[in-house]
């Protein structure tokens, strides 16, 4: 499996030029996408599907900050172990509980604007953690693993909030 940064010819680091990522992605798909191989042999069509799949996967991993950070650590041999390691500092857990409570309140009162505000707050919190993880990946990778776990936590709550909004809108 090729290194995703190398595949897109981008420097292996957290801070990425997103416009360049988009450009490289489109250039790659323009060459490897199955639509370009409709009249090719089955062997080439299979190659194309596998390559286009890999390009899509790589693009998704690099595009999202949490998965990008996780991937950078993985390349250093550090596994973030999000499934099993759920130990979090107390203050972070407190913040989590407050978000969950706000979510439950909004569920009862069907307050979609409150949920939107909650999403904005979580985005701001995630931004801070992303800046932090950019430095940690280089300077303190083990610390970075915890930050990735925190980011994953926030992503998960955000997903739940989005799902709740969709439910309330129905």
């Amino acid at each position: 499996m090729q290194n995703y940064f190398a595949l897109f010819q981008l420097p292996q680091q957290f801070a990425l030029d997103m416009t360049l990522l988009d450009t490289q992605y489109r250039k790659l798909q323009a060459e490897v996408h199955p639509d370009k191989f409709v009249n090719a042999s089955p062997a080439e069509r299979l190659q194309s599907m596998q390559m286009a799949t890999q390009v899509n996967e790589a693009y998704q991993v690099l595009k999202q900050p949490t998965s990008r950070a996780r991937y950078l650590l993985q390349l250093q041999g550090i596994h973030t172990d999000e499934e099993n390691n759920t130990a979090m500092p107390g203050d972070f857990l407190m913040a989590q509980m407050e978000w969950r409570e706000a979510m439950d309140d909004a569920r009862v009162t069907k307050d979609i604007p409150a949920l939107d505000a909650l999403l904005t707050e979580m985005r701001a919190q995630a931004k801070v953690l992303q800046q932090q993880v950019a430095n940690e990946i280089v300077a303190a990778p083990t610390q970075a693993a915890l930050t990735v776990r925190k980011l994953r936590f926030i992503d998960k709550v955000s997903e739940d909030v989005n799902q709740l909004i969709a439910q309330l809108e129905e």
């Binding site: 595949l7 897109f8 010819q9 981008l10 420097p11 680091q13 801070a15 030029d17 360049l20 490289q24 250039k27 790659l28 323009a30 060459e31 490897v32 090719a40 042999s41 062997a43 080439e44 299979l46 190659q47 194309s48 390559m51």
Partner: peptide
Amino acid sequence: AAKRMDASVQKALAGKNLDSLEL
């Protein structure tokens, strides 16, 4: 087929020099 696919990938990003990338 695999060789041709590799060549396609190279071709897609050819002419891009890593040093010239804006970071």
